[in-house]
Design a binder for these strands. Sequence first.
DNA 1: TATGAGATCAACT
DNA 2: GTTGATCTCATAC
Length: 193
Amino acid sequence: MTMSAANLSRSFFARSVHKIAPDLIGATLLIDGAGGRIVEVEAYHHTDPAAHSFSGQTARNAVMFGPPGKAYVYRSYGIHWCLNFVCESEDSASAVLIRAIEPLEGLAKMRRRRGLSDERLLCSGPGRLGEALGITHALNGLTLDRPPFELIARKTKPEIVTGVRIGITKAAELPWRYGLAGSRFLSKPFKTS
DNA sequence: TATGAGATCAACT
DNA sequence: GTTGATCTCATAC
């Protein structure tokens, strides 16, 4: 599969979540001009007890059961907004959770939203990233290849590390977390063996 | 460095 | 009523 500098669109997301998740590391995500390079994601497959889609469709997760290439936004712990990209096709609701971004564009806007100047903590975690990019329920279900989203494929394949997912109790042993090796913008370090 | 509480909401038992 | 794909701040070692 070749990936030029074109925007990622529906065909990119019409694949297995396990292929898409590592392919997103190094891609650039902007929302209304704020964002940067994706450095950490997690894959959630519909057969996975930790996935929101595991127990079937609800009002919250309905977007996961629709076509791929859309944003799935949910409220986490009553406080944060977390962003996912919907993958695969209708009968296999799965998604990639965007967990951390290296801030590159719209720094002033993101600092203002976060009330924080430390670049390292601007987008290093799903809730932080949600606040910095201004993510809310209003983005749920929107298509990723149109404004306010800008999603640009990486130009070269970076070194990628994998590990177990963070903050879950179900299926906690599955190594479906992917990160950019050596990045200082990860939400938590990956175990080095 | 590590552990704990609070914030606050939707899904689920 | 409890739990969770989280983060921040406070207190303790």
